[in-house]
């Protein structure tokens, strides 16, 4: 009940890594969910907004509390029974109210993965056909990818002119996917 009276993680995130909007036009219920994901693929922060009954609000609050700190894979596998247990029980006829939260979380995760795939694909394109300017700096080195995140890419083996390499790559990525992607060099 406390999760309804004082819902945890209610609100929105600035520049979320994953975002979802789910709802049922039939009953007008709706929910948005934002996630921030760290470089270990763990949910670093999570926020939700909902137009739903007390059960939906409490379930969303519990779900976000459970998911925080989990890897994406773990979070995707959260069971309804865990939410009910976390809340210390829930009337059976309200179980369905928690479904919207599940949908929102899995959609936010897939939104994150889609964005990450887009960043990875764009980066691969650049490496497949390295721009002359960059080739001149790299010489015969081959950039190795350490980690890809929708908003940042970590790479290594770029030689000494790190800042220039990062600048060129960031510009190329911006041109390809229209979003700012930070390039970090390990």
């Amino acid at each position: 009940m406390d999760h309804f009276m004082n819902p945890r993680n209610a609100g929105e995130l600035d520049n979320p890594d994953g975002h979802s909007e789910v709802g049922s036009p039939q009953c007008g219920d709706a929910m948005t969910l934002d996630i921030k994901v760290d470089d270990d693929d763990r949910i670093a922060d999570i926020k939700f907004m909902t137009f739903g009954c007390a059960g939906a609000i409490a379930a969303a609050s519990a779900l976000t509390e459970i998911a925080k700190g989990m890897t994406l894979e773990e979070a995707g596998g959260i069971k309804n029974s865990q939410i009910v247990e976390f809340l210390g029980g829930m009337p059976a006829e309200k179980y369905h109210c928690s479904v919207m939260g599940h949908d929102a979380l899995s959609e936010a995760i897939s939104n994150f993965i889609t964005k990450r795939d887009a960043t990875a694909a764009a980066f691969k394109e650049i490496l497949d056909e390295v721009p002359t300017e960059l080739r001149n700096i790299l010489g015969d080195r081959t950039i190795s990818i350490v980690h890809v995140h929708p908003g940042r890419v970590r790479i290594s083996n770029v030689g000494t002119d790190r800042q220039k390499v990062a600048e060129i790559l960031e510009k190329e990525l911006q041109n390809r996917i229209g979003e700012t992607v930070e390039v970090r060099i390990a």
Binding site: D29, F51, C53
Partner: peptide, 28 residues
């Protein structure tokens, strides 16, 4: 603002009112 959530909070404040819809059977 969803009515059943209002109903629940206002009930905690000791006020009995009602809403036209009920979210109990799976669809509102």
């Amino acid at each position: 603002v969803e009515s059943e959530a209002i109903l629940t909070l206002i009930d905690f404040a000791g006020i009995s009112v009602s809403s036209g819809s009920a979210c109990s059977t799976g669809s509102k």
